[in-house]
Amino acid sequence: MTQSPPLSEPTRAVRKVHKPSLGDRLAEQIPRLVVSPTMLIAVVFIYGFMIWTVVLSFSTSRILPRYEFIGWQNYQRLFGNERWMVALTNLGIYGVLFVVICLAIGLLLAILLDQKIRAEGFLRTVYLYPMALSFIVTGTVWKWLLNPSVGIQRFGRELGFENFRFDWLVSSDMSIYTVVIAAVWQSSGFVMALFLAGLRGVDDSIIKAAQIDGASRITVYTRIIIPSLRPVFFSAIIMLAHIAIKSFDLALALTGGGPGYSSDLPAIFMYQFSFTRGQMGVGAASAVIMLMGVMAILIPYLYSELRVKKDDR
């Protein structure tokens, strides 16, 4: 990756005659020089800190880092903690629902928008707009909407449906689903944009050929268009999955992890244990588990990406 591109033949020929001047040598090194600060920063602040976190997760660190090592104790504590298990279960529920619903809604919207309708540009912007908001804003707005005493429930009751109930936000069993609702609202427009780009890339002639062969519209979509969107599905899943694992601000603004800790997520758990509860060791251990979660998604992705490139050659 960092190697400079091979010099073209004529340059080499010249080099054999003249000693390379200082300017030439500098020019050769410039790409490396320019890239190296970024490289260094990435190595120290991303990979260095990852390693530091792993080290801390095996230490007795409490309010400050401390380097006495206790083996796997922090991990044992972590997995003995009821709250962590709740957070992991929530991540499972939230992650799967978030990704699946976003894909379904995004694909549906994209297909509908792709029907050569009027005002497509306007509609596209409408659906894409939620992405321009930060998760904190989304969380706060949905908190008001979902709050039974001011939001949708009250609206329903004022319309005359006296027994209308929509109190997921304040129910321990259902609160995690409100996070899914808000997250889907925010991200499905983005997925739509991805799919729309994919749909535009499908070769028209194949579709026309299929239509001449008598394929119905539904068959065209299910047998030709959607399968050809496979790479889009792939990138969308990767992006959504790691948004899900990193989720912190949305849940914090929407439910604050509550009621109780019923809508806790690993990122909130990590933050609280590391920074407010003086259990940096356990917090670091939870961060490492999250990192492993992200890697479990990224490694197959990178692997397949690199393999595809090799095949192309």
């Binding site: 009821e82 509550g258 800790y261």
Partner: peptide
Amino acid sequence: TTSSIQGAIYDVVTAYFNST
């Protein structure tokens, strides 16, 4: 209590409070 024990008590109390 230290913040870690306090947090542990919080967790149990609030879980009980919000559980039926």
